[in-house]
């Protein structure tokens, strides 16, 4: 079978979403040094806040996106204050288990409030225009542009601003940063705001391209982790590269393997990535 370019396009769209999401996860990991299982549910929360504003209150999508992103940034800080802050000195393993509890709570709260089945944003469904035999939608193009803008913004933030440089330093060595006089608690606050906002945006993108479901984030978590780990956990540009690699591989895989094993691509990438290159694509992981 010849490779239909449509699959590659689909992969780029999925890859953009995974990249953005992986970026938020890896930022949080870089500073806080634990795997946050609830991250997927942060994504879903952002998507649902936007859904409530857009489809339930009838406000324009732009307003809804702002509300979802802002709401989730605040939400991430809230969860930190209520839960994670009390576990600051715990081991990464304890924090991981705590985050499972948080994930259970958030996911089922969403189900209790919005019901268990899927929803769509108030965006018309219509036949997509096609260019060179590839069908694309306005939402997809917006997703790709938004993700590129975000990636550029985060790059500038990390390289050019004081806070970003402090973040990078802290992600390399927290104790050292503290000795040099950086207020790590303030850094933690900023990283939750940034990580939460990015999670919310990732969730909204996912909901726009697909469907808004209570477990939408949780089921995307494995590809996101695969991207993060493939890119070297804690390394933002690795996460982005990993995200596109996983997205494209996953969508193109249906040409060679049965589509029911599409998910196995991310699973296998995660396992192989961890076993062969625990330092990631660019080899500058935090541990």
């Amino acid at each position: 079978m010849v490779l239909d370019p449509q699959f590659v396009w689909n992969g780029i769209v999925v890859g953009s979403i995974i990249s953005v999401s992986a970026l938020g996860l890896t930022l949080i990991f870089g500073i806080l040094n634990f795997i946050n299982i609830a991250y997927g549910d942060y994504m879903a929360t952002g998507a649902y806040i936007a859904f409530a504003v857009n489809a339930q209150m009838g406000l324009p999508l732009v307003v809804a996106i702002a509300a979802g992103v802002g709401g989730m940034a605040a939400g991430a800080v809230l969860v930190d204050k209520v839960v994670f802050e009390h576990f600051r000195t715990s081991s990464p393993v304890t924090l991981l288990i705590v985050s499972i509890g948080v994930a259970f709570f958030i996911r089922n709260l969403i189900r209790a409030v919005w019901g268990p089945s899927g929803n769509f944003y108030d965006v018309p469904i219509e036949a997509n225009p096609s260019l060179f035999g590839v069908r694309y939608s306005v939402e997809q193009v917006s997703i790709i542009i938004a993700s590129l803008l975000l990636l550029a913004a985060v790059y500038v933030l990390l390289r050019r601003t004081r806070i970003g440089i402090a973040m990078r330093a802290a992600s390399d060595d927290r104790t050292l940063t503290r000795i040099r006089g950086v207020d790590t608690e303030r850094l933690v606050l900023y990283v939750w705001i940034a990580g939460g906002a990015i999670a919310g945006l990732g969730g909204i993108m996912l909901g726009l391209d697909a469907q808004i479901r209570p477990n939408m984030g949780f089921t995307t978590l494995i590809p996101i982790f695969a991207a993060t780990i493939l890119g070297g956990i804690g390394d933002p540009k690795g996460a982005v590269a990993g995200g596109f690699a996983i997205g494209i591989l996953q969508e193109v895989s249906v040409v060679v393997i049965p589509s029911e094993y599409k998910f196995a691509v991310a699973l296998a990438a995660l396992i192989i990535g961890l076993l062969l290159r625990p330092d990631g694509l660019f080899g500058e992981a935090t541990r």
Binding site: F34, I35, S91, P92, V93, L96, I222, F225, A226, I229, P258, E260, Y261, F263, A264, L267, A268, L270, I271, L274, L275, P278, R287
Partner: peptide, 26 residues
């Protein structure tokens, strides 16, 4: 995977379990 650090091991085992379930399912 036992040589991996704790939380990495968690991710590998979780993925392996899902892979097993996918195989059983299909």
């Amino acid at each position: 995977s036992v040589r991996l650090e704790g939380d990495y091991l968690a991710m590998v085992t979780l993925s392996s379990a899902e892979l097993v379930r996918l195989v059983i399912h299909n």
